[in-house]
Write a protein that binds this DNA or RNA. Structure first.
Ligand code: DUT
Ligand code: MG
Length: 548
DNA sequence: TAGCAGTGATC
DNA sequence: GATCAC
DNA sequence: GCTA
């Protein structure tokens, strides 16, 4: 039994508003009870001996009163959920004072008054001159009446998978030994141009939504920035659902062709629901979001955000740093915590430099130098190297440099990457290694990855990724490595709804047994991106159109 | 109301 | 298995 | 947060 740190505590948790969900509440409740505390089930009747009221970070007083259906806040400690979460995590009852809701609330009030004052002085000026109409017409054309995918996959020992109208049905026998074979070997060659999926148009339309050119003029920048801010904050709060929810809403607004002046325009748009509409309304009316402003007052969030920018530091490490009392990057540099690993130390040392975006030209210069070195090590074999990521998608500024290589002869590349990196270090182009997976014939995978730091003679340190794939999976890797991440995710999700599993190595039947994924034969062999899009039954999407 | 991409390295 | 990254 |  754990230490009953919540002994004698009577705690009421409010949820269901301001981004604090019932799921979180239940988890916290369970833990509190497990640790000896009592939680109040009925919020309509608060007990006399209530010791703590846990409220969402960003709730307002009126919202609290309304929820509790009372006229005055109860006389107990009112804290944010952090108090409970951190206490549970550390198995120690933390002092309430740093988690008091009132503190944030008061600061927020002051800020609001300030903002109101400013607004009265100068009306928000609208300085958009946008007439350019964007063509949103989808390029997707469905090839009709294509011959059905005759691919049949058989699994030994009465596990059978059939590809029926592209709908894979799986019969699973528990505890079966699974081994998957592809019967029709001949169908695995590209010469078989007929093989492609033929899902229907309405289904494809869901996918097309996530693609499409991002408009260059920033019609709705204001809205997007606010929502981005919300998303960032939820990233820190580890609210996986809202992160993706807002991300999709943002993408939807990005590809929305008109300037938004009324939420009426957005009604019915995919991925923009009631809540988001409400928030956009607030942005249109007040120029800002009270939720974001409340969050801005949250010192903890600011610090976490700062620390999350250290390469190798995620939400957990950032949390630890805040807990240890670090407030600035400088403080960490002066006295790094003992739990930092080598990579995090590198990330910290190069914090400012790595945060700088890289001009296209510099990405090109670095890529070309690396390609030259790689070619010189290729023993005369034909090496293809393409710079992917945001560079390939045409961005003027890139976060890092992503280079993908393959041997056109289809042969192995074992060992090349480590030699290449060694060589690049010799000439001073590569300065640090963060991760490298080339070491010998680990045989586990046929591709290798290098993640590290590069630097031109008079330049800043830059993050760089080099990947080498066998020619066989190169097209899939190119698709993956070109991204964007959002594009990949929506394409993969789409494939999934069709019973497939799309990865950087190909497309496979989605077979899972318990938590394991099985190595199946790929459903299609594609040697170019064009063939992949063709397989998907859609027109080729240029990299620029995948920038979302 | 569940699920939201799929994978590899590292500790 | 959790964390971090692409 | 949104959708099936
Ligand atoms: O979570 C992720 C991250 C990345 N990628 C793919 C798509 C992405 O385009 C590519 C390279 O990753 P990177 O982080 O470099 O993203 P980017 O698109 O190149 O943007 P940036 O300009 O930040 O480098 O890897 C994913 O599929 N999932
Ligand atoms: Mg990149």
């Amino acid at each position: 039994m754990d230490t009953p740190i919540f002994q004698d505590k009577v705690i009421c948790i409010l949820c269901g508003f301001c981004g604090f969900t019932k799921v979180s509440k239940d988890i916290i409740s369970n833990n509190i009870e497990k640790l000896g505390g009592t939680t109040v089930k009925k919020i309509s009747q608060l007990p006399e001996n209530l010791t703590h009221l846990i409220v969402p970070y960003f709730s307002t007083e009126s919202k609290l009163l309304k929820t509790l259906k009372i006229s005055q806040l109860p006389d107990c400690k009112i804290v944010t959920q952090d108090w409970a979460i951190q206490s549970i995590k550390l198995k120690t009852l933390l002092p309430e004072d740093t988690f008091l809701w009132k503190c944030y609330f008061q600061r927020q009030q002051e800020k609001m008054a300030e903002v109101d004052e400013l607004k009265r002085k100068s009306q928000i000026d609208e300085e958009y001159h946008i007439n350019k109409q964007l063509k949103l017409q989808s390029n997707i054309k469905i090839e009709e009446n294509f011959e059905e995918n005759e691919n049949q996959i058989k699994i030994e020992e009465n596990l059978e998978i059939k590809n029926e109208e592209n709908d894979i049905k799986i019969k699973l026998d528990p505890d079966i030994k699974i081994e998957i074979k592809q019967e029709d070997e001949s169908s695995r060659f590209i010469s078989d141009k007929r093989r492609r999926a033929n899902w229907k148009e309405d289904e494809l339309s869901k996918f097309k939504f996530y693609t499409g050119k991002q408009s260059i003029d920033n019609k709705n920048d204001h809205i997007i920035q606010m929502l981005e801010e919300l998303k960032n904050n939820y990233t820190i709060l580890k609210d996986k659902g809202r992160i993706i929810g807002y991300q999709k809403a943002i993408s939807a607004i990005r590809s929305f062709p008109e300037k938004i002046t009324s939420i009426e325009q957005l009604k019915g748009v995919n991925q923009i629901g009631k809540q988001t509409l409400q928030k956009i309304k607030e942005i249109l009316e007040t120029g800002s979001l009270s939720r974001v402003e409340a969050m801005d007052e949250h010192e903890r969030l600011g610090q976490l955000k700062l620390f999350l920018n250290i390469w190798g530091v995620g939400t957990e490490a950032a949390e630890k740093l805040v807990r240890k009392g670090y407030k600035t990057i400088e403080m960490i540099k002066a006295n790094p915590p003992d739990f930092f690993n080598e990579n995090q130390k590198i990330g910290l040392a190069l914090y400012d430099e790595l945060l700088e975006k890289i001009p296209r030209e510099e990405v090109k210069e670095i890529s070309e130098k690396i390609t030259k070195v790689a070619e010189s090590l290729a023993n005369g074999r034909q090496l293809t190297a393409i710079t992917c990521g945001s560079y390939r998608r045409g961005r003027p500024l890139c976060g890092d440099i992503d280079i993908l290589m393959t041997f056109e002869d289809g042969g192995a590349h074992t060992g090349l990457l480590s030699i290449l990196v060694e060589e690049l270090k010799k000439i001073g182009l590569v300065t640090h290694t963060l991760v490298i997976t080339d070491e010998e014939i680990k045989k586990k995978h046929e591709n290798s990855t290098f993640e590290g730091i590069a630097k031109l003679e008079n330049g800043l340190h830059r993050r760089i990724d080099i990947k080498i794939y066998p020619r066989k999976t190169y097209a899939w890797a190119l698709l993956y490595f070109t991204g964007s991440a959002m594009f990949n995710r929506s394409m993969r999700l789409f494939a999934k709804t069709k019973g497939f599993r799309l990865s950087d190595e190909g497309i496979f039947p989605a077979i899972r047994y318990k938590t394991e994924t099985f190595t199946c034969a790929p459903i299609a062999d594609c040697y170019t991106e064009e063939e992949i899009f063709e397989f998907f039954g859609m027109a080729y999407k240029a990299p620029e159109e995948r920038d979302m």
